[in-house]
Design a protein around this nucleic acid. Structure first.
Lengths: 168, 168
DNA sequence: TTGAACTTTCAAAACTTTTTGAAAATTAAT
DNA sequence: ATTAATTTTCAAAAAGTTTTGAAAGTTCAA
């Protein structure tokens, strides 16, 4: 397979994966493009390679920066901004875990805390089922939260080791 | 807090979480409703409680069945079908992991396999960066695949134990 | 300052996904 | 076989999301 064809396919695949994980297709494609670029790219280059508009490129690059997956690179004497992605895929994974934990898991846990305090008239089947479900999710969520915390803080080798253990 | 208010909030929260994970809001809400119902519900009851149309209820219930999260329940002498969700949240989690692995991870790995075979002219920076990225993702993906496989097959206690270890 | 080189914004357009509801299909009892 | 209860389908409508591109804003070198 030729490199250009392979690049194209990789960008498509990453975009598809992104959209089934609640990330916009284009954002994932910009990420893919930066992941396989040895050098930082300018807005122009991103627009051109993905055939997207300036506004769109700008929006998605900023979202990636916001997720901590991409950084601006300024070159002395150049007005233009260049963008470069974190290439270490384990770091990328950890960073995504960190952000999702903050954005989704923690708010969910706060919401559940409140719901645990619902008044339960004894003998009410509905209230019992409700409490049990909320409690179960809360417990699982709390465990996931602690696990992620440990994982995010750990350095790569620790994490690799833990995964190895998990795999028996 | 009153039970009805709490139910409402739970359904909303589950719907929101679902949509940031690529699951449609309504599908997650139907799931939430069934999770907190001690008894199986009919299509009518789902429509009514969530204020959605018959077609919509049918579509989403079937999607949940397809994901292995909900089952039909037939009552002798009743024409109507009733639906009941798996309540054990650990089982739910494992089932979702299983399905996503099949639907997303495996296809991604197949795609990457093909991309690993790209011809690399030596000394080509671009080709090098491409291969390194694909290789890195492929390795991580393979590890995740094995880990999920172990986890899915394991029984609840094994998994709890492993998570505990992970948490130090 | 000025103005050229760029980045950011945002309202409107395009596209995608979800929802509706009525018609068609299915089912089971009579 | 007929009917009435129920589920399923699907085309059209509504809602939601993403993209565009031109205008506004910013920055910096001269």
């Amino acid at each position: 397979m030729k490199l250009d064809e392979a690049k194209e396919k990789f960008i498509q695949a990453w975009g598809t994966l992104g959209s089934s994980w609640g990330i916009s297709r284009t954002m994932a494609q910009v990420h893919a493009l930066l992941l396989i670029s040895p050098d930082a790219l300018s807005a122009e280059e991103i627009m051109e390679q993905l055939s997207i508009s300036r506004g769109n490129a700008n929006l998605n690059v900023r979202a990636l920066i916001d997720w901590g997956l991409v950084q601006k690179e300024l070159r002395p004497g150049e007005r233009k901004e260049f963008f470069v992605a974190e290439k270490d895929i384990w770091k990328v994974f950890r960073q995504v875990a960190k952000e999702r934990r903050k954005r989704e898991l923690e708010p969910m846990l706060s919401a559940l805390e409140a719901l645990r305090e619902v008044e339960v008239a004894k003998g009410d089947r509905n209230a019992k089922a409700f409490s049990d479900t909320v409690e179960g999710i809360y417990k699982l969520g709390t465990k996931a939260d602690k696990t992620l915390d440990t994982m995010i803080k750990a350095d790569e080798n620790w994490f690799l080791g833990a995964i190895m253990k998990l795999m028996r």
